[in-house]
Nucleic acid binder design. Structure first.
Lengths: 212, 212
DNA sequence: CAGTCATGTGTACGATCGTACACATAGGAC
DNA sequence: GTCCTATGTGTACGATCGTACACATGACTG
């Protein structure tokens, strides 16, 4: 049936190239031609493998979301006990999320698409559902949502609060920002969000029941 | 000195039109021509008033950030006492941030630019600094950072977790999502993040000293 | 009133874009 | 070997883009 001539993973390479080009120049700056050139395939291949830019973007960002989720799962899967889980979250933020310009850019490009087009919102929704499922190994569902949102916010603010000059967050008159301080503040935030408020209106269990 | 012929706020109208076009079609889909058409000015006006797209984008998003910050300031400025402040934050999220598709889209477009280009990061940095200053009327600096990040994360996740079909968040097997429940969860999250963890390593005051 | 200059506009050019479609070519059937 | 077809490619077209630049024109000067 399949009589692929050669290079059966052309499609995959095109998707990889698309992510590279988008990371470098944005969805705005990405064109069939640039992606084709970067992947080393002829222009005609683009329309042959993908019906249009939206299909390519959808596949590319689906792959991107999956690969991030995999790391998320892995870190949280390894943790045993609630303290290790909290530490895993801190590590995630500081080691995985904050260290890669590429991932920062791609994440925002995806969010921008998702904000406007429902078909991309399906991708972000699945990604978030996976994140919460991973957190659900250690925390109750309500806490998972809050914690997931906190992770998002801390990552974004750390990245977008950086000095225009370069990558790392800036210090104003405000709390100083050497790496250890920054980590400690993240740890404190994670501790707070995973600890029920005293006058809580919700039942109150933060940690998951022992089984499962 | 100034001998403006007529229509002295051409520039302003162009900036407004730019935001409209970007909200509708994204930075990717915005062109000098479309913006000019929407503003009702000739194409030549674009290059006359702005050196290029980046200058226009920078001015447009600066205005956008300022207008959001104004509302932020206003709500927090009106609150007296820490409980009112917490309530103001909840209201902010549910009434200002979640209700406008336009603002959601523009915010992400800005973040995407900021993720890639330092000159736009100056805009996000100022915006965040203003937010923290407003929160600083009621909370200590460390809490301000955490709370600001939480607000960001909750807003984003609420918007991007929506059913592909439409605007509002979806429910899975997870916590249900009618408006009052959603608000209560937000309130709980705000309460948690503004309450120091028991085993805190940081000194521990959450509320600001009485004076000022 | 005439002259002059800052202010603003219309048009045309070269670059780049996505897509369609006629064509090439490898691999299996016989 | 010879066909035949699924698979893949090169090219050319029309649309759209940003920008440059020659020109128009209102408003002040004298």
């Amino acid at each position: 049936m399949a009589t692929r001539r050669f290079d059966p993973d052309r499609r995959e390479r095109i998707i990889d190239a698309a992510l590279d080009v988008i990371a470098a120049e944005g969805v705005a700056g990405a064109s069939h031609r640039k992606i084709a050139a970067h992947a080393g395939v002829p222009l005609g291949s683009m329309s042959y493998h993908f019906s249009g830019m939206d299909e390519l973007l959808a596949e590319a960002f689906t792959r991107f979301g999956t690969s991030i989720s995999d790391r998320f799962d892995e870190r949280l899967g390894r943790a045993v006990g609630i303290d290790a889980a909290r530490q895993a979250v801190v590590d995630l933020i500081h080691e995985d999320l904050l260290d890669s310009q590429r991932e920062l850019v791609l994440t925002h490009e995806l969010y921008t698409l998702a904000a406007r087009k429902p078909e991309f919102r399906a991708i972000t929704r699945d990604w978030m559902a996976r994140s919460r499922r991973a957190l659900g190994l250690h925390f109750d569902p309500v806490t998972c949502r809050m914690l997931d949102a906190l992770i998002e916010g801390l990552s974004i603010h750390a990245a977008l609060d950086a000095e225009p000059g370069n990558t790392e967050p800036h210090s104003d008159s405000e709390p100083s920002d050497s790496e250890p301080h920054s980590r400690a503040r993240t740890a404190e935030a994670v501790a707070r969000i995973t600890t029920p408020a005293l006058d809580s209106t919700t039942p109150d269990t933060t940690r998951k029941a022992a089984h499962e």
